[in-house]
Amino acid sequence: MPDGAQPVLDVRGLKTVFRTRAGEIHAVNDVSFALQSGELLGVVGESGSGKSVTMMSLLGLLPMPPAEVRAGKVLLNGQDILHLPPDQLRRVRGAKVGFVFQDPMTSLNPVFSVGMQIMEPLKKHLGMGRAQAESRAVELLELVGIPDARARLYSFPHQFSGGMRQRVMIAIALACNPDVLIADEPTTALDVTIQAQILELVKELRQKLGMAIIWITHDLGVIAGIADRVMVMYGGQVVEQAPVKELFANPQHPYTRALLLTIPKITGEREARLKVIEGQPPIMLGAPNACPFRARCEYRHAACDATNPPRRAVDGQPVGLGHDVACHWHAPARTEVAHA
C-alpha cells in the first residue's frame, strides 16, 4: 500500500438500518474502510454479518424502504457518491464500480441474450453504437475465457453452465473498465473446481487490468490465496482489519481467532477437529451499545456489556491502514498464539 496516496474508495462511518415491524435492524454499523488502487480487499464474516448490505449501501442498491443509509461518506476517487442524485449515481454504477453477485443462475435476465446484457452498459455509459458494442462484447467474453465468443454472443443464459454464467457476469461487471470491482460471494454457488477456475480468472484479470477488488466470502481459505488485506465483519461491524499475512499470523479478535480455527489446515499439523463457533449470530435489533460478539465470546467481561468497543490500532499504524481490532480484550503476544 503506498502511504499517503488517495484511496480509490474510501468509506467512512457507514450506517445502514432496516425498518421492520420488530424495530430497527442495525445491519451496518459505523463501517469504515479504504481501498487503494489495485488492491484486493477480502471481506469475511458469517451469514448475516452485513457484508452484502454494506456493499449494496455504497451504490444505493438496497430497497428503500425498508433500508435506510443513515450516515457515512462514500468517497469514490474523492467524490462522495452516497448523496448523489439518482441519475448521477447511475453513471457510477456499472461504469466506475462493477458488481458481481452470488448466484449466477438467477443474476442474468433469462429472456435476453448474454450479448445484449453485456452491450447494455457499453451503450449506456460509453455511448457505443451497436457494431462497436458488439465487438467489445466479444472481446470481453474472450477476456473472461468463453470459447467461441462471437458465435455465443446471442445465446441465452440458460444455454450456459453456472461457471460460464458467472464468467458472463464478470464480463458485464468489467465492461466499462471500472475502478472498483465488487464481487459478492461470486463462487459460493459453484462447485469446487469451477470455484478454483473463477478464482484463477480473477487473479489473472487483476494482473491484466489492475482494478481494485473487494472480494466477499465466507471462506478464509480463499482469502489467504488472493487478498492483500482482510476485513472481518461481525454483527454489522468491522471487528478486525489487517494485511492478509498479519491477520493469519496474529489474529486479535476472538471471532477471527475462532474463524481461523474453522478452516482445515492442509499443511502442517492437523487440528484434532474443526472448531465450531458456538451460538447464533446476533439479530441487530436496537441500538448497538455493546459488543455484538459478547454472547458467544469466551473472553467476555463487564466492559463488553457496557460499551461497544471502538477500533484500535494493533501495530501502531493509524486505524484502517495497518492492523486494527475492535475488542476490549487484549490478545496475548504473538509467540504464545503460535503455540496455542
Partner: peptide, 23 residues
C-alpha cells in the same frame, strides 16, 4: 436477482421496469 443486476449496471428505472421486468 436479475433486476438488481440491471440496476447495478446503471440502467435507469424505466429500462429496468419496462424492459427487463416487463418482458
Amino acid at each position: 436477482d436479475y433486476v438488481r443486476t440491471a440496476r447495478a449496471k446503471g440502467m435507469g428505472e424505466r429500462t429496468v421496469v419496462l424492459k427487463h421486468v416487463l418482458r
